[in-house]
Amino acid sequence: MEKGKIVSIEDRIPKLKQLRKSKANRRLVLLLSLFFILVACVLYFLSPLSYVQTVQVEGNRYFTSKQIIELSKVKKDRSIWKVDTGKAADNIKKNEEIKSALVTPVFPNSIKITVSEHNRMAYLSNNGKYAPILENGTVLEELATGEIPVFAPVLIGFKEGKALKLLLEELDKLPVEIQNAISEIHYAPTKTDEYHIVMFMNDGFEVSATSRTLFEKMIHYPSIVSQLDPKVKGVIDLEVGSYFKAYKNAEQKEGKNGQN
């Protein structure tokens, strides 16, 4: 080293200078990235890209997705972030068939609606029209013409009162698979039992029972049927004990259905 001449550390260690440049470049790239992300976010929020494009509905069973969307009053002319999700959920829950509703925005432009409905325990038949009965006992307005009962039995001959109330309480205790196996329940009171009923099952069997012990007896229905010949239809009597009486012929079966 020449006398009186100072050599900088950057000249002595070239790698340190390169390192400083790299740090400066990375800082610049980071700042530019944040800037462009910020600009993209502003453009997204201000442009139609954030407007509601699709509305997804989950959990609905009796209502169509279109009906749920109409209840929510969610429109497609606003940003998903400006949708009042709480109000939309409240709009849906105003319908007495809806147990709960949750509305959430989904990036980039969707709204998700998750609902839970009260189960329809049965349908009350009246002159060819059907009024759904909810699990909480509420009897709804009759279905629109052409709309058919689903996922629950049709009740024939019943009116609002203690017989209907007891039947619904017993049905509610039954497993869903047994509830769904029942096609029709006819109110057929006798002199000795004002709660006597006749049920027609989806598998072709007929069940004579009483609402008083419906759960207690019907809980064994799958086991009883498994021991019968599926080709031989008839009446399963569950009023007192439990026994099966086959139809003598097809005409007898048709006659029984015609009487109820």
Rank of each mutant, 00 (worst) to 15 (best):
Q179G: 04
S79Y: 11
R120T: 04
N91D: 08
Y187V: 05
I148V: 12
L102S: 15
Y221C: 04
V235H: 08
C41T: 07
K82H: 15
P48V: 13
L238R: 00
L102T: 11
V29C: 10
K17V: 10
S33R: 07
V7D: 04
A209T: 01
T138S: 13
K3Q: 13
L19H: 10
S79E: 11
G146N: 07
I111S: 00
L134G: 05
F200M: 04
F205V: 00
I13T: 05
S183G: 09
V235M: 15
L71C: 06
K256R: 11
E117I: 07
S100N: 14
H118W: 13
N136C: 09
Q18G: 12
T104S: 10
K162R: 14
T54L: 10
A122D: 00
E135C: 08
E2L: 14
A88F: 01
K75L: 08
L31Q: 06
S100W: 06
V139F: 12
E142Y: 03
E239H: 02
V115F: 05
E141H: 12
L30K: 12
K3R: 13
L30A: 14
V150D: 05
K21F: 12
K76L: 08
Y243S: 09
S22N: 07
I68Y: 04
V103Y: 06
A122E: 00
S65L: 02
I69D: 01
V57Q: 09
N260M: 14
F36M: 11
V198F: 03
L174W: 07
E177Y: 13
I98C: 08
A131R: 09
V83D: 00
L140H: 06
E251P: 02
N25A: 14
E169W: 03
P14A: 10
I6T: 05
R78E: 14
A209G: 01
D237C: 04
M1T: 10
L167Y: 03
V115E: 02
D237K: 08
M201H: 03
T210L: 02
S211D: 01
E169R: 08
L134D: 06
E58D: 06
V42S: 10
H186Q: 11
K162I: 14
N95C: 07
G234S: 13
K76Q: 15
K112V: 05
Q179V: 06
F205E: 00
T190G: 10
Q259N: 11
D172G: 03
N136P: 04
L34W: 07
L28C: 09
A40S: 14
I197M: 11
P108G: 06
P149T: 02
E184W: 00
K66R: 11
V106M: 13
L238A: 02
Q18K: 12
K129P: 01
G255P: 01
Q56V: 10
E142D: 04
L32G: 06
I37A: 15
L19V: 09
N60Y: 10
L16R: 12
I224S: 06
N60V: 11
C41D: 04
L49M: 13
A24N: 12
F151I: 01
I80R: 03
A163Y: 00
